[in-house]
Amino acid sequence: MPEELTAELEIPEAKNPVESLLRMERMPHIWCPGCGIGTTVNCFARALEQSKLDLDNVAIVSGIGCTGRVAGYLHLDSFHTTHGRAIPFATGMKLANPELKLVVYSGDGDLFAIGGNHFIHAARRNVDMTVICVNNLIYGMTGGQVAPTTPVTAKGTTYPYGSYDPPFNLPYLADSSGAVYVARWTTYHVRHVTKAIKEAINTRGFSFVEIISPCPTLYSRRNKLGDGLDQMNYYKENSEIRNGADTKEVGMDFQGKIIVGKFVERERKTYRQLMNEHLTNVFGDQFTPYEG
């Protein structure tokens, strides 16, 4: 097996390394058997560990829904906010304390339906934060309703005969809104996800990682796609790694090919940089920069 796989995990301890980042007193978590959210949490924990960040300075913000519960399980300063509003909460927190590393961790319905407006504006402003979207293509917590990511023809309880509501292509949306880092992987690609999260949190500016993840209870069952493992195998067999792909071309069809990879990596000044530079130009010595 490749050496990179063995090297980093040489932790000869009986304790699962993810546990140091979890609130173990809150386990077991609420997620269903075969749900991929927990898998993404492993990747996130590993990425944080490898990033060597001071974890006391990492704040995690979630909205509402299954993935919205991630904040509550992580042993970090964690904020479980209102439905769709994790990003503006994080915007306020980041602007008020620039020393904090802000990670928004939420689901596709939360971030892109009710929270869609905030996503595009935070990307436009280039607020320095990482947004991790666990995209299970459906509303899980409320019981399997169609999301703005549900592929056309897939069934949800609110489109019982199959959806005809065109979904977002999330990487394209992030790219065109101004995100400086955009990647998509699936929960099958655990090492790529880990690497992408590490890269995203080390990127200054608005970074976005989409992780396609199984929802066996609501998405797979209603659409007769088997269980979580069947979805994982679908990801394995139907994902095509295409780093640098034009995000316009990475939209998803029902059970079709999934284009994964790192699509965007670019530099833009952050909102704070723009603000401080501009106001320094305008006011010179009179400018009193926010001290944080």
Partner: peptide
């Protein structure tokens, strides 16, 4: 800009009313 504060014009009132709470929890 003259007294060391940050004003941000948010995308709507919903965002404004939660952004301030993020700032409060930042201290």
């Amino acid at each position: 800009p003259l007294v060391g504060g940050i004003f941000v014009q948010m995308e709507d009132e919903i965002a404004s009313s939660i952004a301030i709470q993020g700032a409060v929890w930042a201290g």
